[in-house]
Design a protein around this nucleic acid. Structure first.
Lengths: 323, 323
DNA sequence: CATGGCTGGGAAAAGCATTTCCGAACCTAA
DNA sequence: TTAGGTTCGGAAATGCTTTTCCCAGCCATG
């Protein structure tokens, strides 16, 4: 709405030159008479002037915003990641724009393709798939700074921050075995993602004869409920469960309880993300600690200094679900 | 990274003029020789050309993206709203950027202030607070198209889409009373928001002597758990509970069950949002049906045609939690 | 052969803010 | 009074794409 007002309109109204008005508004190359500065600011107010972000971005080759591309905002783990970035960047006076790819490499490709260096200064991306996300990310990395967060994609040069998933699996498996569990079921989802690939591979490497893996379609509470039904339909010797996401663990936990099973007595449960869910479930979920804060810091540092991968060591948070 | 390649570099390499290259890439004002078009496209490929979004936005006065400003992405209700918009706009070839204000009018003000017409074509905003969000939204509406979604702010002219909260409250209260419940507790949060104001007001207008309202700080599972503790510390005659958010209802439901109460026998529970949570909880939560889809459609229609408010009629979805 | 109708090229403007260059004006200190 | 410093204004360049204007070819049809 409204007649577009440009900086020259402001300058005209304030009775100053355009360079002077610009000096007043956008920092300082030279001192400006406070009287003139006031007139400029008043003129802005009266005319409702807002700097044109596109023109500014074009000239400055920078916006003060970063993009965060996540596969599923409805997953509590990513929602917490978004919040962590958002709060952190707000403190720096930067903005975060979040984009949801719905775990689809096609949507991801379209979104990344539209995101060149002009709209955001950098892109933090959680690749949807290990195999099929690489091309679009590599392409984007030609024209923009990119950091892969939490997951990565094959063949991409852009730096990454991620959890040491193998170490995480080891921590959980060792913990459950130390609690006397003999037969562990890993409930995973989104098996195309790098984190799932790493976790299931690590689990299989450690697994004994009674251990098995169950793949679900998505990281949702509903998947957890379905997993509980599948488990009880074919219980085997299973006495412990590792979920690769808190949302799945929550569904599994409540479904098992409603089907008359006791946790941790009948089934010990442990999970990966350390979201609010693990704290609020009853009993509390044994998980790996939340890495959101460290991921945020590490990825922002990578944006500054450049290359290399950061692999975060997990730590174990023991709660009631594992006995 | 890489030397910036502009359209003129592409034109040079393809051996055509800049206008011709532009014609090939960005639609059609005139027919172009297929042979030339191919040369242009090859040149783009070889040079890794990406159109500069800032320059394009500056010239065209439009980007193909909308902003959605939500108060708390971690709230399942808003997460589902984000997903719904995201999928819907992807079909139209548009992009959605999501911004989280953490329920803070200050963060909201900063974010909205930076969002002028150049970066996004329109802004869909869920105002954090009824009283304190108005100024920033009105200001933004001077230079950009704005629609208020789900909540609204006092004194803002921008059109809005929202639920008929009074009707929703009536539906839930009547349902619980029809099930024989005499004494209803409404558990609310984020009381500064317009939806909370409307819901609590409608509830108080219908309330009898045994009915009461409990205000919690946030729409989280943790708040639901805390509410359960508060309730059991002062049970009164309460035999039914209305939660103004599914996340709160989930925490409340599981906490009550773990404290030895039966749902719906001891407490009937009903909730507002119709998120996946209401489906997956056990027992299922009686709620109002999800309005995400209708909100998305109505708000996008408002962006096209202009003004007026849309108030959506709620419908009741009965599940096990209310008996 | 001539007139239209296409299509491509070159030049240029528009979109808007930022920044530099230089000249003009003014003030202070020697 | 003069040399030196400070500050503002005007003009112009830069960032890049899109679009218009007009001219020059080329083919086809009358």
């Amino acid at each position: 709405m409204g007649a577009r007002v440009g900086l020259k309109d402001v300058a005209l109204r304030a009775g100053v030159s355009v360079p002077t008005a610009s000096r007043v508004l956008s920092g300082v190359q030279r001192n400006v008479d406070p009287e003139l500065a006031l007139r400029v600011r008043n003129a802005c107010e009266e005319l409702g002037y807002k700097v044109n972000a596109a023109a500014r971005a074009l000239r400055l080759q920078s916006t003060d915003s970063l993009a965060l591309v996540v596969p599923a905002i409805a997953n509590a783990y990513f929602a917490e990641l978004v919040s962590a970035y958002s709060r952190r960047l707000d403190l720096q006076g930067k903005r975060l724009v979040t984009i949801d790819t719905d775990e689809s490499p096609e949507i991801e490709r379209r979104q990344l393709g539209a995101m060149d260096r002009a709209l955001v200064d950098a892109v933090l991306v959680v690749p949807a798939a290990f195999e099929r996300s690489g091309a679009a990310i590599t392409e984007l990395a030609r024209s923009n700074r990119v950091v892969q967060v939490d997951r990565r994609a094959r063949g991409v040069e852009a730096p990454s921050v991620r959890l040491d998933n193998a170490a995480g699996v080891r921590l959980l498996v060792d913990h459950l075995r130390a609690r006397g569990r003999r037969s562990i079921l890993m409930v995973d989802a989104q098996e195309d993602s790098s984190s799932s690939i790493e976790r299931t591979a690590a689990f299989r490497a450690l697994a004994g004869p009674g251990d098995r893996v169950l793949e679900m379609p998505s990281f949702t509470v509903a998947s957890g409920i379905d997993a509980a039904k599948l488990l009880l339909a074919d219980p085997g010797d299973t006495d412990a469960i590792i979920c690769t996401a808190d949302t799945v663990a929550l569904g599994l936990l409540t479904a098992l309880q409603h089907m008359g099973k006791r946790v941790p007595d009948d089934y010990a449960i442990a999970s990966f993300d350390g979201t609010y869910i693990s704290d609020t479930a009853a009993p509390g979920l044994t998980t790996l600690g939340s890495t959101a804060g460290r991921m945020v810091e590490a990825s922002l540092a990578l944006l500054e200094d450049g290359s290399g991968d950061v692999v975060l060591k997990p730590d174990l948070v023991v709660r009631g679900s594992s006995g």
